[in-house]
Design a protein around this nucleic acid. Structure first.
Lengths: 330, 330
DNA sequence: GTGAAAGCGCTAACAG
DNA sequence: CTGTTAGCGCTTTCAC
């Protein structure tokens, strides 16, 4: 239509340069007016390059949280198999040293994009700077690296704690005692953990009658140490700001199923078991499978399809009780 | 590999016949052992046919529920535009006659698959039988047509009522009064409505102490009739088994924000407003946008990609409170 | 029954 | 800067 060859049109569409401005304008005008859209089938057929995306997350061991994002990542991998996408996995043992060692391997790899869980904040910042220098598109899941304007898929940790405040207190008699149970190896004093706790407190401070509940805390440093719930028999509701609610649930069950409200995070098999037995009342689901799946899809859309995608996607704050846990997706 | 031409292989793969059994076996064996998968891009490129899917749902009017699935359908439509998919919309006025009239139009249409909301049960059964005779792949959303072994994406209505029972009663003092508010034009006495109500009752009958709560009902036939909440000031918790909780919330607000728990369905703008104002406590989200989106994707995968997809997909029972409503997807 | 061959629309390498 | 052309893997027609 423009009186030029397909080669010229191709150069214009893909901005490969080496075309006269005159032709660029002419062709772009025709593309617009004729509503031309390229045929994806023909395009993918002819375009043979394979894309490699790195997956840089902690190694799942046993009934681990990190099995869950992997599940979603595998799903995306299967779906994109015929679409010229290949994943390269970099798992690392869940220690700072393990992370740092693996980080170097990742940086040496030949990849076109990266899915990354920035667990270790300081090291992650350094690592991310290196990635940016290489010009890699990076999508982060699970934890948000503040101060970096990078793509992130995961929950708003503050808001999830805020929500937990509601769940821990709804329907409770005024002046009830609510306790935060901090089961924290040092690794867990992550920003996510802190932000959830802050959000939890914030919920109560914004209530119209701020003194309606009494908030206390207890800290358990060693998670092997049995939690003695009977010490806290006057507490109505418990909040565990990480995935270890099952440890508390176990204690409650052993003490004869005390009727204490318990709110926690993550659909680990252990947590689900106590949800069904009634010892855990609410779990907030981070949708880790979805995070993994969406993360890979993000890379596909960004790198392969060159679409512009919103880079900040907060996962919904999914409330799970025993009555709806069988119907969660994935 | 089998020493035959591509033509022969093609005839075998598509079961077009006119091939010797010997070759059929030989080629099938090779396909299996070599793990051959056909290149979907090349296939679709050579196979020039465009696919038309019908969308057969009620016409949305104003701030209507049916705007929501359409949102998801449009999203899928945009995504699949370049993939040889075209949608044809058949909207109908939300009456039995409107449905029946439109149904005939749909049956006369030239489409390769159908997304369908079987609101009017009896007529839908007849319609569906006709679709099956035409060999159309059909995906139903919103309501499940029992007795038909057809693809469905939507909630399990019974279980959503069961969940509502939990939400309506959690934390309540024993012997509290809980009321079901049936705001039903006759149209609403749908199976979905009934099933939710049954699920709600079932929740209370399976409680260990079945007499813990007192359940009552009230029926409002004409939704323009103001609901007089002050008649029920001894009620602790209300359940509205359809999307009209906002009518009750309005009454509560007008009566001075009585502290009554209110549980309803669907994130209509009106409902969301009362969720934020605190007059509605829980909404169960059917994810109608997701249903529309997934429905079209189902047709695409089934018809275009010829993948086998699970045909029964229950939507999650999504619990929305004011603390997480800003983070729902879509 | 079977094989040969002409596209499908696009990409990318090559020759000017 | 521009045009030409050989595929990409599959479908389908036509000839045998």
């Amino acid at each position: 239509m423009a009186g030029v060859s397909t080669g010229t049109v191709d150069r214009i569409i893909h901005s490969r340069g080496q075309v006269s401005q005159e032709n660029i304008d002419k062709v772009n005008a025709i593309i617009k007016s004729s509503g031309y859209k390229k045929n994806i089938f023909a395009s993918n057929l002819a375009f043979k390059k394979k894309f490699k995306f790195g997956v840089f997350i902690p190694k799942a061991s046993g009934l681990d949280y990190w099995e869950m994002p992997i599940k979603g990542i595998h799903k995306a991998e299967t779906e994109l198999l015929n679409y010229g996408v290949q994943l390269v996995y970099f798992y690392y043992p869940f220690t700072l040293e393990g992370f740092q060692k693996a980080a170097q391997t990742v940086l040496d790899a030949d990849i076109d994009g990266l899915l990354f869980a920035p667990i270790f904040f300081e090291s992650s910042k350094l690592f991310l700077t290196n990635c940016q220098q290489k010009g890699w598109p990076v999508i982060m899941i699970d934890s948000q690296l503040e101060g970096f304007n990078q793509a992130y898929i995961g929950q708003n940790a503050f808001q999830s704690g805020f929500l937990a405040g509601k769940l821990a207190s709804i329907g409770l008699a005024p002046s009830s005692k609510i306790m935060i149970v901090k089961i924290a190896r040092d690794i867990d004093s992550t920003s996510t953990f802190q932000q959830r706790t802050r959000g939890f407190y914030d919920y109560f401070s914004q209530l119209k009658n701020a003194n309606q509940f009494e908030l206390i805390e207890t800290i358990i440093r060693d998670e092997d140490n049995a939690f003695n719930i009977s010490e806290f028999s006057d507490v109505s509701s418990l909040f565990v700001p990480n995935s270890r609610a099952y440890l508390v649930a176990e204690a409650i069950q052993k003490s004869g199923n005390l009727p204490i409200r318990l709110v926690g995070f993550d659909l680990l098999p252990q947590n689900l078991a106590y949800l069904k037995s009634g010892n855990i009342d609410f779990l907030i689901n981070q949708k880790p499978e979805e995070q993994g799946y969406q993360g890979i899809q993000y890379l596909y859309k960004t790198v392969v399809l060159k679409e512009s995608v919103t880079s900040l996607q907060f996962m919904p704050l999914d409330i799970i009780v025993s009555e709806n846990c069988a119907f969660t997706q994935f």
